[in-house]
């Protein structure tokens, strides 16, 4: 990918993640290439099992070391994440990179108050006193627009509503001013009126702090609200990338097109939805060639024999489909089927 002088904040090169058990090997992520510039918001869109969450956990080395085989290059801010050890790794987590999850109750400790948890995180990473940490915690809760923040500092996680809990987790994730924020479906479990509040909040904070954000979601609407760029994943591969306007407005890959046409809205009343038939492939036995071919209405013989190449249109605009490859477009060499 052509790029100007500054190195990217995140660079994934040929990332592969396989989960190995006695019975089977699951290829969760296959040859993923991605870059994220500082201050950019990238949405990874995909359905369950597409490998979107696994890729993100690989970025932070959160996968079980014994079962997950990670190969390829993962660079964050110039650091080779896959070779980090001990202290360096814990400095990366929560210092340079932090993460927010779908269910805040799993990330917050139920036996400590919200203020205490944020203060402890600040103290650990910045080496300040507990009281300074508490002050910072108050600032952070105000930053994420928690009403009556001072009182909420002393609240336990279960005493907060879903939206406030999510805000508290965001505050904790921001406590050490990370350069990169990873968000794993943080608004999926929230109600519509609360979801939009959290999305707007994240958008504002991102702009103010200039963080890079990788936001994993299955919801195209969420991507439309928050993303600068979008990467669509299917069966462990990125099938399309581009700016959010390009991908949602002019999708190239049949899968992205199918996702858009099967997203329900009111105008379709009384008509059948153009659904994508079938279900995603079994990651234990991936078909050769394009993984989407069995569900694709444009599929032809060539789709199932060899993996389609990454067809690159502009910098950052890519679709992995043989149907969109005009001769004039520069192509990477054909990758033989596995």
């Amino acid at each position: 990918m052509t790029d100007t002088g500054t190195p990217p904040l995140v660079r994934l090169q040929d990332l592969n993640v396989k989960f190995v058990t006695r019975e089977s090997t699951v290829s969760a992520v296959n040859d993923v290439n991605l870059t994220l510039k500082a201050g950019e918001v990238l949405c990874i869109i995909g359905e369950s099992g597409s490998g979107k969450s696994v890729s993100m956990r690989a970025l932070m080395r959160l996968l079980p070391e014994r079962r997950a085989r990670i190969t390829g290059t993962v660079e964050v801010d110039g650091k080779d994440v896959l070779s980090l050890k001990g202290k360096e790794l814990s400095d990366l987590r929560g210092g340079l990179v932090s993460m927010i999850f779908q269910e805040p109750m799993t990330a917050l400790d139920p036996v400590y108050t919200v203020g205490h948890q944020i203060a402890e995180t600040v103290r650990r990473h910045e080496g300040c006193t507990y009281d300074q940490g508490m002050e910072r915690a108050l600032e952070l809760l105000e930053l994420v627009k928690v009403p009556s923040a001072e009182r909420r500092l002393r609240a336990f996680p279960h005493e907060l509503s879903g939206g406030l809990r999510q805000r508290a987790m965001i505050a904790m994730a921001l406590s050490c001013r990370p350069k990169l924020l990873l968000a794993d479906e943080p608004t999926t479990a929230l109600d519509a009126t609360v979801q939009i509040q959290v999305l707007i909040l994240l958008r504002k904070i991102q702009a103010e702090m200039g963080m890079g954000v990788i936001f994993v979601t299955h919801d195209l609407g969420v991507a439309a609200e928050i993303a600068d760029r979008v990467a669509v994943m299917y069966a462990g591969r990125i099938v399309e990338t581009g700016t959010v306007q390009e991908v949602l407005g002019n999708p190239k890959h049949p899968y992205t097109q199918g996702m858009l046409s099967s997203t329900v809205h009111g105008n379709m009343r009384g008509k059948d939805i153009e659904a994508i038939p079938g279900s995603p492939p079994d990651l234990r036995a991936m078909p050769p060639g394009c993984a989407f071919a069995p569900r694709c209405k444009y599929a032809e013989a060539a789709c199932t024999t060899a993996l389609p190449p990454e067809v690159i249109f502009d910098a950052g605009r890519m679709a992995r489909c043989i149907k969109v490859a005009p001769d004039s477009v520069r192509q990477k060499e054909l990758v033989p089927a596995e």
Binding site: E47, H218, D219, M259, S262, A275, I276
Partner: peptide
């Protein structure tokens, strides 16, 4: 359900 399955 996933969006594509939801439509089905």
């Amino acid at each position: 359900l996933d969006k594509s399955v939801e439509a089905q």
